[in-house]
Amino acid sequence: MKWLHRPYASMMFLALLVGTPSAQAEQVTGKLLAAPGVTQVEGSGGGGLVPWAVLAGYDSREQTSGTVFSTQVHLPDYRLNSQGVAVSFYDRVEVSYAKHRFDLGTLGGALGVNDIEQDVLGVKARLYGDLIYSQWPQVSVGLQHRWLRDRAVAQVVGADEADQGTDLYVSATKLWLDAFSGVNVLGNLTLRASRANQFGLLGYGGDVEKSHSINAETSIALLPHPQWAIGAEYRQKPDNLSAFEEEDAGDVFVAYLPNEHFNVTGAWTNLGQIAGSKEQKGFYLSLTGYLW
């Protein structure tokens, strides 16, 4: 039972927490099943790597909602653990918080650092539309502000700033009912202004590029059944450090959304080269629970 370490135990606790059947048998939720998507690694409603225009919960214009999530990414040389909460207000504004713990494994030993921790606070506002019902895609703008708690590695790799940084993004997301032969298709395009090195874990900016650059992120998902989504994502990333090349990230995923209380996503992800370790590909597992 080697895998039953702390992150998985916390995921199971989360499963127990949200798995409890709620009293309302006929829920009046603001969104159809799967419409909030799942939780993105930085805590925003979205896919796995990419924030979408949808807000994190099942709230309608009259409701609020709260979600919790836990995500593990197993890479050859690293482990990423991300956990957090999101509250969505009246299908208009989402506020999210995620805590990242990036375990450096044996590589950390050389630096005398076991892991890198950071906090990510996100805010997202829906500007236009509805994922399913508006003619044009739903459009939201958001920001993700990060505070790096462990700055030693960012300083060692040559980050311009090791303290904190802000990403700004705009996302357009649409679900086409019956896009082809009865299968629903979701498409998302996000443009992000960022100076983060490796999701901010290695600080912000570097000798190649000090300031924000615009990066495209995209997701596509097929929903042959409301409870199942399969798809792929691609996230361009800044490449600010001459000494440590940063590559774009991608994933292919399967999400299972049995009901409006929780969903689980498994993905195979390729985060490319991270701090000199090449080919960081591995399994991604994420659970989102909907509290109210």
Binding site: E26, Q27, V28, T29, G30, K31, L32, S60, R61, E62, Q63, D91, L177, D178, S181, G182, V183, N184, P224, H225, P226
Partner: peptide, 28 residues
Amino acid sequence: TEGEFNATVNALTAAMDTEGVDKRTQNR
């Protein structure tokens, strides 16, 4: 409300589930 509208959509899909209409036909 939006919530009531969605509940009605869910009622319709539940009806179609019971009548054995497959999900792809429901989406159409």
